[in-house]
Amino acid sequence: MEQQPESTRNEASLLQLFGVFAKIGAFTIGGGYAMISLIQNEIVNRKWLTEDEFAELITLAQTAPGLIAVNMSIFTGFRLRGVKGSVIATIGSILPPFLIILAIAMLFSNFQDNPVVLRIFKGIRPVVVALILVPMINMVRKSDDRWWKWLLTAIALCSVSFLNVNPVFVIMAVIVVFLVVSLINDKKFKKTGL
């Protein structure tokens, strides 16, 4: 990975896009959330996207239907190289897990009871939690510049993890509230602006 002195965005080739997402797909353990750190590591450090754009894409990936990890590849691929990019990135992130699962289904019976596998994953599982927490903290530190944003983060976290509220409802509620607020602001702006 070469670091360029200027802070301009680097161009991503389709082959690079495929390689990066295949790498991400092969090392995502414990679901899409664990992928966030990996994608950030690969995409932001390569200067394909800024951290702000990255935060926006995570938000979109979480809001859209489907798997977060797959949505993340579609949005990133599209942002970087259009429709082709989104197809390539998606195939890249799906192919390694697909092949790994096929190999396990064909070759290993009782994979989940294998003692070596169990020991390796006993080490990885707590680490995955740390890998999910760090990008979350970074996101909050960088984008929550107002007190109500901190409050919103805290409310979302507590309502889902302690009160068992469905995350879909949280997202829907926020969309509705902020749609109304920005429509009102927009109207005010137009009235005074014209």
Binding site: I132, M139, A156, V170, I171, S182
Partner: peptide, 21 residues
């Protein structure tokens, strides 16, 4: 405007995913 609200919310949801693990 909607993104302004969704970004901190999603950060909270990611935190919740970690807490539940």
């Amino acid at each position: 405007g909607i993104m302004d609200g969704l970004k901190p919310t999603v950060a909270g949801l990611i935190g919740a995913a970690a807490v539940m693990l």
